[in-house]
């Protein structure tokens, strides 16, 4: 039994276990944040109850891009919004009959299957702001959590 737990070299096994624990703590505590998705706002891309990871490393060398599904923190990383980026800093955005229009060009969104006729007057995003919306837009606009998020709130890009 002892051999099974520790192998032939107990010291080496303990070292391996310690490295494994430290690696897991670093990876899942600081790089790949586990996210259990709750709610329907990202249907059909993500189902309620799915497990995913917010990949912080994906945004270490580049800024968030349009189409990225990102995790947005509240007071901290324990509770996160998961939304898709549709508008980038300094862009002028409006929504007309459910179609997102960015700098006067209608946005093609293949991931948005359900689209209610939302209307939102044009507005310009700030230097540090992104417009984020869920993929499920079948509900009335008032019932969907979306809006502007500042860069410091975007903690990572969803892994898959």
């Amino acid at each position: 039994m002892k051999r099974l737990l520790f192998g032939s070299n107990a010291r080496l096994s303990l070292l391996r276990a310690a490295v494994l624990v430290v690696t897991a703590v670093v990876v899942f505590g600081y790089v790949l944040l586990p996210v259990r998705l709750q709610g329907i706002s990202m249907l059909p891309t993500y189902r309620d109850g799915m497990l995913n990871f917010a990949n912080r490393a994906a945004l270490w060398w580049r800024e968030p891009a349009r189409g990225d599904v990102v995790a947005i923190r509240m007071a901290g990383p324990r509770v996160l919004y998961v939304k898709r980026i549709v508008g980038l800093p300094r862009e002028r955005v409006e929504i007309a009959m459910g179609v997102v229009i960015v700098d006067s060009v209608p946005l093609i969104e293949p991931t948005v299957v359900y689209k209610a006729p939302w209307n939102l007057p044009a507005f310009t995003l700030g230097d540090d702001e992104y417009l984020v919306i869920g993929d499920n837009r079948v509900m009335a606009m008032e019932n969907h959590d979306f809006g502007r998020a500042t860069r410091d709130r975007i903690v990572g890009k969803m892994l898959f």
């Binding site: 923190r73 919004y81 507005f123 417009l131 979306f146 809006g147 502007r148 998020a149 709130r153």
Partner: peptide, 11 residues
């Protein structure tokens, strides 16, 4: 506090 600022709320 609002996490996502709804467009129009500060325009």
């Amino acid at each position: 506090a609002e996490t996502l600022q709804r467009p129009g709320s500060q325009d």
